[in-house]
Computed example of a mutant assay.
Amino acid sequence: MDSSLNARWYVIQTKPHKEILAKEQLEVRGVNCYLPMAPVLAKKILQRKNNMPIDEGEPFFPRYIFAEFDVESIHTTRVKSTPGVSSIVSFGGVPATMMNSEISELKKGIAQMIPKLLAAAIPAKGDHVEIISGSFEGLSAIFEKMEGETRSTLLMELLGKQVRRSVKNCDFKFIE
């Protein structure tokens, strides 16, 4: 990692869905990186990607990571040519920099936001949901409880009776 006194923080734009690759490749090159990730649980319950459950968190800022390096020891062309990197955010041709205090505040804000996102992502008992895929697609149900990170118990009406069924979290969504 670049520990030079002249190191500055830069905002790096990545190629689509290549944030993790860019971060890993920059770190191999001695660049300190920060890639804030949204919580796994919130994403699994609320979203799907290409009809497949999302298995890991996603970047808070899609296509952007933060990188700290000294341009005297690691030139910007080396950073821009890193696999997964598209460009360095610039204004008037000059790479934009961020202060350490701004990165610290960003980290602090995201750390405070994660518990709120998790709380919002977990339905409360009695919340109405709609099943969006699987055997019960199109049915409305009532959320009962979580069964770990990947499944939940839902109360639904089948053949005139209320029954409890275990459903993948990615197979239902909230009804607002």
Rank of each mutant, 00 (worst) to 15 (best):
S90I: 04
F91M: 06
G92E: 09
G92I: 03
G93R: 05
P95G: 09
T97V: 14
T97G: 03
T97K: 03
T97N: 02
M99C: 08
M99E: 15
M99T: 11
N100E: 11
N100F: 03
N100L: 08
N100T: 11
E102N: 13
E102C: 10
I103K: 06
I103E: 04
I103A: 08
I103S: 02
S104T: 10
S104E: 15
E105I: 03
E105S: 14
L106Q: 03
L106P: 02
K108W: 09
K108N: 08
K108Q: 12
G109W: 03
G109M: 06
G109H: 10
G109Y: 05
I110M: 01
A111Q: 15
A111F: 01
A111P: 03
A111Y: 08
A111M: 11
A111C: 08
Q112N: 12
Q112A: 15
Q112P: 00
M113Q: 12
M113S: 10
M113G: 01
M113N: 06
I114C: 07
L117G: 06
L117H: 08
L118F: 08
L118H: 08
A119R: 14
A119N: 10
A119G: 04
A121M: 06
A121F: 06
P123R: 12
P123C: 08
A124D: 13
A124Q: 15
G126H: 11
G126R: 10
G126N: 13
D127P: 06
D127M: 13
V129L: 08
V129F: 01
E130C: 09
I131C: 04
I131Y: 01
I131R: 02
I131W: 00
I132T: 14
I132F: 02
G134V: 01
S135Y: 04
S135R: 13
S135L: 06
S135K: 12
S135H: 12
F136H: 11
E137T: 05
E137G: 03
G138Q: 09
